[in-house]
Simulated assay, not measured.
Amino acid sequence: MKILKNLNAKAVLVNLILLLFFVQSCNSPKNKTIKKAIVNKEKPSVPDIYAEHIRTSEFKMPEEERLAFKLPPGFEITLFASEPDITKPINMEFDDRGRLWVTQSSEYPIAAGMGDGKDRITILEDKNGDGKADSFTNFDDNLNIPIGIMPVSDGAIAYSIPNLYYFRDTDNDGKADSKKILLGGFGHKDTHGMVNNLMRGYDGWLHVCHGFSNTSNVAGTDGDSIKMISGNTFRVRMDGSRVEQTTFGRVNPFGYAYDEKGYLYSVDCHTKPITQLIPGGDYPHFGKKHPLELVLLLK
């Protein structure tokens, strides 16, 4: 009897502990949010696990942002343009007239389906010479997450889901009068890493980055095609007649630049930040076997 009483007492104690744990769990901030949402027939608001380790900061005015930059000796930073004149600028490029072309992807990362969106390419000019943009001309304002812009003599080449387009400004008023598909269509299931950073190479071709997680099968008008999966780079003739893959691998290439000696560098937004690219080079990717590993496996 004494043993039974002791067992019953232990059972009651365990149940009390479990009950206390259950009550505390139900009263936790997360479960209170879920309970409230259920009562109000709303979708529970669960914390974003992808934002747990992202540093947050208060909103700052443009001048506060400018003063926060840490610059190397001899460098100066000035404000050229800010909201509300531009919103979510992702890529920019100067033309031969000194105008700054900016892709504004306000809808990012929510794509507007396969049709036109509300994003735009805007031409910024400093007409009074005070170092700040005072003219804003929307070259095209029906785009779908434009990421990548390259001004040309009669318009611009730019990416907008799902193609690279050749936009022409036939009357030189700073607005696109026509557009045609230069190359496409590109994969865009992951809108965080798409075709971006168009750059004119020393070879005369247009060089482009192909971003993370997407698969693209594209061909020039000559019918020869390439298939790219996730991080890669490629080049295309300015008339779209031919496309060639230039490097393989990496995760999310986003950024292209030549130095004064002609060496090509690119930024990878996932792994090693800066890589010097060699034509035909195959670089590591955390979701793929390293080229050397594949050779060893084949042996």
Score class of each variant (00 low, 15 high):
S230H: 04
F248E: 05
N27Y: 11
S213F: 09
G155N: 03
G187R: 00
T191L: 07
D154S: 13
D140S: 12
G115N: 12
M199C: 09
A257W: 01
C269R: 10
A111E: 11
N8F: 14
G280V: 06
F286P: 11
V251N: 04
I278V: 13
F22T: 13
K179W: 01
I86C: 02
I278L: 08
Y265G: 03
K70N: 12
G129A: 04
S82I: 02
P273N: 10
I147V: 13
I278T: 13
Y265K: 04
G187N: 00
N40H: 11
P162V: 12
S135A: 14
I161C: 02
L264Y: 04
F248M: 15
E63Y: 06
T137V: 14
S266Y: 01
G131I: 05
N214L: 07
I147D: 04
T103Y: 01
M194S: 11
R200C: 06
T247E: 01
N8L: 13
V195A: 02
E93V: 12
G211L: 02
G223F: 01
L182C: 08
G185L: 07
P109A: 15
T191G: 08
G155M: 04
N31S: 11
N91T: 14
G223H: 03
F167D: 01
F234Q: 03
L292Q: 08
N6A: 15
F139G: 03
Q104K: 05
N217Y: 08
K289A: 14
N15C: 15
F139V: 06
D95C: 03
F59K: 10
I226L: 07
N172E: 13
L13Q: 13
S25N: 09
I226A: 01
K261W: 10
G174H: 07
G211R: 02
I34S: 02
E293F: 10
Y159M: 02
P29Y: 08
D268L: 03
H53W: 05
V46D: 06
L206P: 00
N31L: 15
C26V: 13
T170A: 15
W205V: 01
L20W: 06
F21G: 14
P284I: 01
N27E: 10
E52M: 12
T221K: 10
E42T: 12
G74P: 06
E58R: 14
W205T: 02
V39I: 15
I181K: 09
Y108N: 10
I147G: 01
D119L: 03
L18K: 08
N128I: 02
T247A: 01
I49W: 07
E52I: 14
E83S: 14
A176V: 05
A133V: 00
L298E: 09
L198R: 00
K289I: 06
D130K: 09
N128H: 05
R237T: 11
L4P: 01
M199Q: 06
E63P: 00
